[in-house]
Simulated assay, not measured.
Amino acid sequence: MSAPTNNSLGASTFILIGIPGLEAAHFWLAFLLCFLYLFTVLGNGAIIYIVRAEQSLHEPMYLFLCMLAAIDILISSSTLPRMMDLFWFNSTAIEFDACLVQMFCIHSLSGMESTILLAMAFDRYVAICCPLRHAAILPSPSIAKIGLAAVMRGAAVMAPLPIFIKRLPFCRSRILSHSYCLHQDVMKLACADIKVNVIYGLIVILSVIGLDSLLISLSYIFILRAALSLSQEARLKALGTCFSHVCAVFLFYVPFIGLSMVHRFGNLHGSSIHVVMANVHLMVPPMLNPIVYGVKTKQIRQRIVRLFQRTTH
């Protein structure tokens, strides 16, 4: 089915597309999206339930993991149901205001996730480099404050993005290149100067994603330096507690930074690499994070086994 022309669109409507080159498979891909969404919600929901129910997991690392799981559920809920509607029912039109809301949700939740990953890196740094002061540096009230700060930071930093889009006129094509609304995608359709959007978007990338990834890298430099002074057994045990977090960091930052670079410096004409990278960034980490932490964390793994045993009897 061909996309509607610009003249047939409403004054405040954008057109979403699926995956270029795979239009014929969209109906069946929607079943995969449905599976990914259900697995993401159930997996992250199980993490939240287990950490809440298991007294031994009421530690900073697992409390931060609960926050990460909640954010992953929200990110998936802001994108995947709309994508399934697009792929199953060819519901391509999205109202301008709905697009702005979705844009804000995706970008602000990504900012919150970056902050939580930084907090988890700080927790690993304190646990390995200052183990005797861990409880004093990160008491439960501080964990709650860090979670609140992550929410406020993500919302405050990303709030100007839809405001800057709102002021732009759109008089050319309104066909987006993704199955959901991203700031860098929507702003390129404007028929006005988007310098403010570009500059602020770059500021956000550097001050949130760039700064957080730099601080996480520095924390692991200190962690490795402290671990090298330990015995081999203690070193492996200490670094083993960081494995899940390192996986979560790579799953989040590598696609995010790659997508930002492709949007800003890549030649996207006739290429769908940015679409693939955007889908990987928003769909894969929320699904894989519960698996990574479930496999690596003994208490979570044992509790999941007990839950399955209880449901099968």
Rank of each mutant, 00 (worst) to 15 (best):
Q232V: 13
S108E: 02
I209V: 15
A46I: 13
A227M: 01
A136T: 10
L251W: 00
L218T: 06
V41H: 06
D193L: 10
I71D: 00
F87T: 05
S231H: 09
L202K: 13
E59Y: 07
L36I: 15
L251G: 02
L182F: 01
A30I: 09
D123L: 03
W88L: 15
A24M: 13
S217L: 12
I15R: 05
R153A: 12
I194S: 01
N279K: 03
P20F: 03
R167V: 15
E95D: 15
L168M: 11
I17C: 03
G266S: 05
G10P: 03
C66K: 07
L29R: 05
L80I: 15
S77K: 03
I304K: 03
I75G: 08
S114P: 05
S217Q: 09
N90R: 14
Y253P: 03
A93H: 12
K145Q: 14
A121L: 02
F39D: 11
Y49W: 15
G270P: 02
S91W: 09
L29A: 07
H58W: 08
C171Q: 15
L202S: 13
L161I: 08
V276W: 03
V254I: 12
S77P: 03
R310C: 12
G258L: 07
T40D: 04
I71Q: 07
L168F: 04
L33P: 00
D212S: 11
L161G: 05
F35G: 11
I163D: 07
T92P: 06
T40S: 12
E233A: 14
L42H: 11
L65H: 07
I146F: 02
L138P: 06
P290I: 05
Y220Q: 02
A127C: 11
V284T: 09
F87N: 06
G10R: 06
I50R: 05
M158E: 03
I146W: 03
S78Q: 09
I163P: 06
W28G: 11
H183E: 07
G266E: 02
S231P: 06
I300V: 11
R124C: 06
V196G: 09
I205T: 12
A144E: 12
L282R: 00
S229W: 09
S78M: 00
H178P: 06
I209W: 05
A155R: 08
F27W: 15
H281L: 13
H58P: 04
Q232S: 15
S56M: 08
L38N: 14
C129R: 05
A155G: 05
P141Y: 07
F39R: 13
